[in-house]
Structures are given as C-alpha cells and as structure tokens.
Write a protein that binds this DNA or RNA. Structure first.
Lengths: 121, 121
DNA sequence: CTACAACTTCAAGCATACTTGAAGTCAAGG
DNA sequence: CCTTGACTTCAAGTATGCTTGAAGTTGTAG
C-alpha cells in the first residue's frame, strides 16, 4: 500500500505519516522507486500511537516506549508516571472551574471590589 | 517604580512585563529618558491577569476583556464560554485516566493481545 | 505521449507564552 | 569620570505536533 491508501484507511494524513517517520516514531517502509510501500502491520502501530496519545503521552514518550523491548513493563511504568500528571491536570482544571463559577456569582463593578480577584490576593 | 521593582514585588519577570506591554495587555507606562516608570495601579492589573490565567483564559482573551468597558458582563460571558471548555477538558483528562488505569491492569505481551488497544479499535 | 494525480524532499509556518541574547543606553555611587 | 547594575530594543529561540508550500518525480489512464 502506498501512503495515500494508508492515510485513507487509517485517517492519519500522509503528511503526518511522513512526519512520524522523520522523528523515528514509525519504521521507514520499503521504498519502491522512491515511494513508500507499507504493509498491513502499519495499522496496528498507528492504532497504538493513537491510543497512547489519547492517554496523554507525547510522541517522544511513545517513541521511547516502542523502542523498549519489554513493551508492557515500560508502558506500565510510564503509565504510572503519567497518571500522576493527569490527576494534577484534573485538579488544576477543577480549580479553574471553581474560579469561573465563583466569578459568575460575583456582582462586582470593577477589579477592586471583585470578590474573586480580591479574595485571591 | 522602575521595571525591576515591579518585577520583584509582583513576581512577574521584567521580560514578561515588556512582553505584556508589547502585545497590548498592559498599558505602556510613562517613560523617563527611555525607562518605564510604573505607578501602584500596575499591581492590581497584574493580579487580575494572573487570576484570569489561572481561570484558563489566554492572554488574548484577557486583553479583550480589559479593553471592554463593561468589565463584568464581558467577564461573565467569557467565563460561561470558558466553563464549557474546562468541563470538556476535565472529561478528556478523565478519559485519559481511565485508559491509563485500565492499561495498568492489563497483562498483555504485545500490542495485539493488549486489551486496552484491542478494545479501542 | 500526454495529462493528471499522487508521490517525493526540504524548509518554513502555526499557536502560545514567554525567555534569551546581542548590542547599546542610563542612573547612581565613589 | 568610571564602573556597575539596571535598563532599552529587536530578533530569534523554546516546546509540541503537525501543516503548508515549492519544486520536482512517478504511476496510471486514455
């Protein structure tokens, strides 16, 4: 399969496939007179990447995971670390939420009598 | 007060103050032979910016809010919109969390028998 | 053979919020 | 006057995950 077909079936744009290859995230496929020819295995690789991205991993981290040969223990270790970040992020967004909700209750006329702003000094 | 003193008291680096001025987020202070001289009002402005940032607004949005003369109604409107984003973000991070937690339960040996990956096809 | 689509590489651009560096100016103390 | 620290402007760099554009090559249909 050429790059356009992989792009069409996977939903990953051709430019992205080239980019992934450039950064060493996916293996360079066979070239037939310069053009990339992929085999079916590419789809499971792309799927893994997509899921890992949804789980919050960066491409750099995903690349590290895939380079490692003990796939699962590497994933587990990074997942534990990432879970900490994700929980912090959730806490952070909750803080945002409460600031926003509080500010919607506020009847201030300016920054100096705004309870949200004044309270947080 | 010169920029260094404002930076010291507010915790906002001088480079950031110049940057804020450049993008029109804070008013350009009086120049005394080229140097910026701020009055005490700058602190409440910076505080408002910090709080708005913590609430998830971008500098661009904060600038818009401050340009508007009906301060509160503008803030309220943008806060309502932002709240939607924040809730989505929380939902998104929760999804991440569940993918990560599920993956930690997984005893797969490779991408093809990994329940997390296979499940999400 | 000729189009035209699909492919190639390489470089640069996008968004955000700043920081860093270079090169020069100014203020205050001795 | 001289030094030193604080300031000035302007340009470019940082991180991330791509996209876009230019200019050229290849594959396929008619």
């Amino acid at each position: 399969m050429r790059i356009g077909e992989v792009a069409g079936k996977s939903g990953v744009p051709a430019s992205t496939l080239r980019y992934y290859e450039e950064i060493g995230l996916i293996p360079a496929p066979v070239r037939v007179s310069g053009q990339r020819h992929y085999d079916a295995g590419i789809f499971s690789i792309l799927h893994t990447i997509q899921t890992a991205q949804q789980a919050g991993f960066t491409l750099r981290e995903i690349r590290e995971m895939m380079q490692h040969d003990d796939w699962r223990s590497q994933w587990h270790q990074m997942a534990r670390e990432k879970l900490v970040d994700v929980k912090q992020a959730i806490a952070h967004y909750r803080d945002m939420q409460s600031i926003l909700e509080m500010s919607l209750q506020c009847t201030c006329s300016g920054p100096d009598d705004c309870m949200v702003l004044v309270q947080r000094r």
